[in-house]
Simulated scan of single mutants.
Amino acid sequence: MLENLLVIILVVLAIIMIAVILLQPDRSQGLAKNANIVDEEKEGIEKFTEWIATAFLVVAILFQIIR
Rank of each mutant, 00 (worst) to 15 (best):
I18P: 01
I45W: 08
E40I: 02
A14L: 12
L31H: 02
E46V: 05
V58P: 02
L31S: 08
P25H: 06
V59M: 05
S28H: 06
V20G: 02
V38R: 05
V12D: 09
R67E: 08
E50C: 04
G44A: 14
D39S: 11
E41C: 01
F63L: 11
L62T: 11
M17K: 07
K42V: 05
L10P: 00
Q29H: 04
K47P: 01
E40M: 04
I65W: 09
V7R: 13
L62W: 03
L2V: 11
L13R: 03
F63Y: 13
T54N: 12
L2H: 06
K42Y: 05
I18S: 12
L31P: 01
N34C: 02
L22N: 13
V58I: 15
Q64F: 10
Q29I: 09
N36R: 05
I18W: 08
N36V: 05
T54A: 15
I21G: 15
V38E: 11
E41D: 14
V12T: 12
E43S: 13
V7M: 08
A35I: 06
L23N: 13
N4K: 10
V58A: 15
N4I: 03
A60H: 00
A55W: 00
I16L: 15
K47A: 11
I37R: 07
V58K: 04
V11P: 00
T49F: 07
E41A: 08
I66N: 07
T54K: 08
L5Y: 03
V11E: 14
E43K: 11
E50Y: 08
V20W: 01
N36Q: 07
I9C: 04
V59N: 03
I37S: 10
M1P: 06
Q24F: 03
Q64Y: 08
W51K: 13
I18T: 15
K33T: 07
G30P: 00
A60T: 09
V20E: 15
A60D: 02
N34S: 13
D39G: 10
M17V: 08
A60M: 09
A14M: 10
T49S: 14
